[in-house]
Design a protein around this nucleic acid. Sequence first.
DNA 1: GTTGACGTTGACGTAAACGTCAAGAGCGGG
DNA 2: CCCGCTCTTGACGTTTACGTCAACGTCAAC
Lengths: 132, 132
Amino acid sequence: MNAKADDIEPVFSITDLAQELDLTTRTIRFYEDRGLLRPARRGQQRIYSKADRTRLKLVLRGKRLGWPLDDIREMIELYETPDGERKQLEVMLAKISQSRATLLQQREDIELALSEFDDIEARCKQQLLTNH
Amino acid sequence: MNAKADDIEPVFSITDLAQELDLTTRTIRFYEDRGLLRPARRGQQRIYSKADRTRLKLVLRGKRLGWPLDDIREMIELYETPDGERKQLEVMLAKISQSRATLLQQREDIELALSEFDDIEARCKQQLLTNH
DNA sequence: GTTGACGTTGACGTAAACGTCAAGAGCGGG
DNA sequence: CCCGCTCTTGACGTTTACGTCAACGTCAAC
């Protein structure tokens, strides 16, 4: 983490973020290519703010949920859209309810899987007892 | 084992399942290739039992959660492993707790995203009012 | 007996999400 | 000035998860 002495806000290099979040620099640049990140530049080099880091963490959350990068980008844009026109706001609301529907479906799938795993585990442990 | 006339178990063709679950036959054959399905055969043709259909639905649930096919296969195998040796049972328990950890992480991610969406939506609606 | 619907395998194509070089810019130290 | 390190931009390779033909089998219907 190479923060200058007179820097108020900490900034990060691409390798900083790669190490912290267990990614390769290639991956981070790829995300930028796909429009998921827009770090500032000092000459050629990328410098990442805390906001960029937060953005990247949001990407990783999206990945853990199995979302494609394009969907993740749309999702992240929701976090950063400033005051918009009426029409724009309605588009946002629609996207939000789209994403929410997906999330709810996923949560339902998870609840089901979890309870089934409980059953299987219980039978499994039962076996271990009677079988001994 | 002779089934009575009103006792026959329903079976499905590959196109039956494809239509019902909104997949292509190519996809279903691909899943078989990757070891996710093992339908019976009548000559060359595949015939799917209700159990096969259930299996396929489990695959789709795994897909909705963004799991890779190999992971889904392992997960499904948990549902069907019969009484095993002590060692085998312990392996199963380990896999279950692995999968459960993933599911819990996913659920946490979902809860976070949902509550953040609530916030964004609220601000959005507020804008729609004041902005009018 | 051939047509058409349905099914089969196999080969090849493709999009997404990166990994892996290759070649070079910039920069601080010795 | 040169070395070593970090960072950069391509270009190409790879894996996963299928799509897309092509070529052929089968069986009931016309």
